[in-house]
């Protein structure tokens, strides 16, 4: 990407190398299982939900914020669409209304987060920590703690089918990439995340920009919920469980700084794919999925600690410079 700093392009190459090494290792270790069209599309399919969601939550990360409600909002929107579709007699119209309703819920959730964060100056993690509980409760109330399944109509089950969900991820990622790297809004988001005071002085409405970022995050989470509901052809309160960590990990692997101001959509998608490969690889090597949490957690800590170290280094250099000037 032009417009990004030089050192970034170097780390971009290193990412491609990591990816290549990974694929190579898996193809050698498990040639018959890994290198099949079925398995590859399987990997992409399994990362599509994470990819879709991280395409939107990256805006929140760029502001130095976080969203702990990803998984329960994903569950709530999944519940909403499934309930709407089943209540409208599994009709095509029901699917459309359901999609709109789920998107509406996602946007509203984002609006609420953005509003509380900007108007009351409450840290993002606390607000989303609280709403996580609210969304979970709402899903439980709507479903009455039951699994709601939905296998019809075709339009609904199609959304989560392998190729549709992959294409959906590509479209959303592409749109998000365009918004972030090509439009004024994207430019401003980097500026707000990098230095909110300077952004304000440069005439940017920081509050409005922040709220918009949370709305985008809510929207992509809702799309993730819709796809997940369609994939599994059912929804319950715990749909989406574990996705908060997965989305954050994907972002962090992809070079998105949780301290704000740095990261790209293509990086985040790369992170999602790498995580999909990792999960797939561990799976093919018969490592139980419960242990993946260990790897993810360590990845997050190492990445953020490294980030924090660089930040500290830079500010130390600054101090040295200032001292020299004095």
């Amino acid at each position: 990407m032009s417009g990004e700093k030089k050192t970034f392009s170097v780390s971009k190459y290193s990412k491609l190398i990591i990816l290549a090494v990974f694929i190579l290792a898996l193809s050698i270790l498990r040639p018959k299982a890994f290198l099949t069209v079925g398995n590859i599309s399987n990997v992409l399919w399994s990362v599509s939900v994470i990819g879709i969601m991280v395409s939107g939550t990256i805006y929140v990360f760029l502001l130095g914020g976080i969203d702990l409600s990803i998984e329960t909002l994903c569950g709530l929107t999944a519940v909403v669409i499934v309930e709407v579709v089943t209540h409208m007699g599994n009709s095509v119209g029901g699917v459309i209304v359901g999609i709109l309703a789920a998107l509406g819920v996602g946007a509203l959730a984002g609006l609420l987060h953005g509003f509380v964060i900007t108007k009351f100056k409450v840290p993002a993690f606390l607000v989303t920590f609280a709403t996580q509980s609210v969304f979970l409760g709402l899903s439980m109330i709507i479903t009455n703690n039951k699994i709601v399944s939905c296998t019809k109509p075709k339009l609904f089950t199609m959304i989560g089918s392998t190729w549709v969900s992959i294409i959906l991820m590509v479209i959303i990622a592409a749109f998000s990439w365009f918004l972030l790297s090509r439009t004024v809004f994207g430019r401003r988001t980097y500026a707000v995340g990098g230095n909110a005071t300077a952004a304000e002085i440069s005439g940017i409405n920081v509050a409005k920009n922040t709220i918009l970022c949370y709305v985008i995050s809510g929207l992509t989470t809702a799309i993730g919920g819709i796809v997940l509901a369609s994939m599994t052809q059912q929804a319950m309160a715990s749909t989406g469980s574990g996705y908060t960590n997965d989305v954050i990990t994907a972002g962090v692997i992809g070079g998105v700084s949780l301290l704000g101001g740095q990261g790209t959509v293509q990086g985040a998608i790369f992170g999602a794919v790498l995580m999909g490969l990792l999960n797939n690889g561990l799976n093919l090597m018969s490592v139980p999925s419960t242990q993946a949490g260990l790897v993810k957690g360590i990845v997050i800590i190492v990445a953020v600690a490294f980030d924090a170290m660089q930040h500290a280094d830079q500010s130390r250099k600054k101090v040295r410079k200032v001292v020299k000037k004095a």
Binding site: K5, Y190, A191, N195, A198, I201, G261, K318
Partner: peptide, 10 residues
Amino acid sequence: RSQGFIPLLS
């Protein structure tokens, strides 16, 4: 530094 520019941007 704190008000004038965005350090991470070009």
